[in-house]
Simulated scan of single mutants.
Amino acid sequence: MELFDPRLFSEVFITLFVIMDPPGTVPIFLGLTGAMTGRQRTRAARQAILVAFGVIAAFALFGQNLLDYMHISLPALQASGGLLLLLVAMELLTGKMEEPAPSGNTGVNVALVPLGTPLLAGPGAIVATMVFVSGSDESLSDWVSIGTALLAVHVCLYLSMRFANLIHRVLKDSGVILVSRIAGLLLAAIAVQLVADAVRAFIEAG
């Protein structure tokens, strides 16, 4: 019996890589962590990856049962994620994300929300993973292939954010502020698209 399915691995990896977009997270990550030191930024990246991996893995295993139990539809999950990202985008555009919190725990907060979820472990990645799991025959080979692909994508995400420190040194503070504004625009567009897709799904379901 085979323990690994290269075709399934490639399908899951490519799909999640496109949805989670490791290169595209760099400007948003820099915008959200602009007030942090290099060490804090590295810790935030590591925490965000662990949170994102844990959330997606949990939804892959128990997501459909949880949503059914709470009577939550996938479009509702998508809309809520879009609204949360829109709030974060407004903070980036107005510069509030660049102000360090009095407690000094900005790294922890940013790593959990919005970096870990819903930016990395967003509705798109969650739904895609749930679709792959439901479409598999739940054999050991399929679980290993899906799990390995999920892990590989998160390694790519971590590397992209880990080397954001180098980008920060090149851009300096003024460059990071500019990137933050651009990231805010991009994040706002992503948020609006998520909400629009959710509304369309609600209309089609009705």
Rank of each mutant, 00 (worst) to 15 (best):
I28G: 01
I28C: 07
L30N: 05
G31S: 08
G31R: 01
G31C: 06
G31L: 04
L32A: 03
T33P: 05
T33Q: 06
G34Q: 14
A35H: 13
M36C: 07
M36E: 07
M36Q: 11
M36S: 07
T37E: 14
T37V: 11
G38C: 12
R39P: 08
R39H: 11
R39I: 13
Q40M: 13
Q40D: 13
Q40Y: 06
Q40V: 07
T42K: 15
R43Q: 14
A44V: 07
A44L: 09
A45I: 04
R46N: 14
Q47E: 13
Q47C: 12
A48C: 07
A48P: 06
A48L: 02
A48T: 02
I49S: 00
L50P: 01
L50A: 15
V51N: 06
V51R: 05
V51L: 10
V51A: 10
V51Q: 08
A52S: 15
A52W: 04
F53W: 11
G54W: 04
G54I: 00
G54Q: 09
G54A: 07
V55F: 07
V55N: 05
I56N: 01
I56Q: 03
A57T: 10
A57L: 15
A57F: 08
A58Q: 09
A58G: 15
F59I: 05
F59Q: 02
A60I: 10
A60H: 03
A60Q: 04
F62S: 11
F62Q: 11
Q64D: 13
Q64A: 10
Q64G: 09
Q64W: 09
N65R: 13
L66M: 13
L66H: 08
L67Q: 02
L67W: 02
L67C: 05
D68P: 02
D68G: 10
D68S: 12
Y69H: 13
H71M: 12
I72D: 08
I72Q: 04
L74W: 09
L74T: 06
P75E: 02
A76F: 10
A76G: 12
L77D: 01
L77H: 03
L77K: 01
Q78P: 01
Q78W: 08
A79N: 00
A79F: 10
G81H: 00
G81M: 04
G81E: 02
G82V: 02
L83R: 02
L83F: 12
L83S: 06
L84Y: 08
L84Q: 08
L84A: 12
L84N: 05
L84V: 15
L85Y: 00
L85I: 06
L85H: 03
L85N: 04
L86Y: 04
L86W: 08
L86M: 11
L87A: 14
L87T: 11
L87I: 12
L87G: 13
V88L: 12
A89T: 00
A89V: 01
A89Q: 01
M90H: 09
M90I: 13
E91W: 05
E91V: 09
L92S: 05
L92T: 06
L93H: 06
T94L: 12
T94K: 14
T94H: 14
T94S: 15
G95R: 02
K96P: 01
K96F: 13
K96L: 14
M97C: 12
E98Q: 15
P100T: 07
A101F: 09
P102D: 15
P102Q: 13
P102L: 11
P102M: 10
